[in-house]
């Protein structure tokens, strides 16, 4: 069965060919954004809801995780899948059978605390925003930015 173009898949012409360095002087993200797109990044506890229908009943399982490393909270977007495995967005391909295994792996990711941070000062100077500031894009509202189609 070949249903070419059923969903609008016309071949893209090579006119979209991108040259090295093209556009690099004015770097800008283009995307479809969503309102309230900050799902759980700064939260230090995570609530995950799983639902299933069973013999005419609607079942809901709510799991709340709070991770701490050395007594300090861990932020992030944690989810539990239908098999009970736990996922975190900065280990994007993993699903752990144990939350302890996930926490150990997050501890392995702890970076170099002696690294001098030049980036936030440099970026804040340029944007005028604070370290946790949400400057720039404003309210996301499910809109597109800069798509060529």
């Amino acid at each position: 069965m070949k249903e070419h173009g059923e969903s609008g898949g016309a071949p893209e012409r090579r006119a979209a060919y991108a040259k090295l360095d093209e556009g690099l002087d004015g770097l800008e993200v283009r995307a479809t954004f969503e309102e309230q797109a900050h799902h759980g990044h700064d939260q230090t506890s995570a609530r995950s809801v799983r639902t299933v229908s069973h013999c005419g009943h609607t079942i809901e399982v709510v799991t709340t995780y709070e991770f701490k490393i050395d007594g300090k909270p861990v932020s992030g977007h944690f989810e539990v899948n239908d098999a009970g495995k736990v996922h975190c967005h900065d280990l994007p391909n993993y699903a752990f059978t144990s939350a302890l295994e996930l926490a150990k792996r997050l501890a392995d990711l702890i970076g170099d605390d002696k690294l001098v941070d030049q980036l936030n000062a440099a970026t804040d100077d340029r944007s005028g925003g604070g370290h946790d500031g949400h400057g720039g894009h404003g309210g996301h509202s499910g809109h597109d930015s800069g798509g060529e189609g």
Binding site: H4, G5, S7, G149
Partner: peptide, 22 residues
């Protein structure tokens, strides 16, 4: 949807379903 693009031309899924010219 406009796909998340940092460099190069932005595209939508409709523009990459058929890449026979690429």
């Amino acid at each position: 949807a406009v796909m998340f693009t940092l460099i190069g031309p932005a595209r939508r899924p409709s523009g990459v379903l058929d890449v026979s010219e690429q």
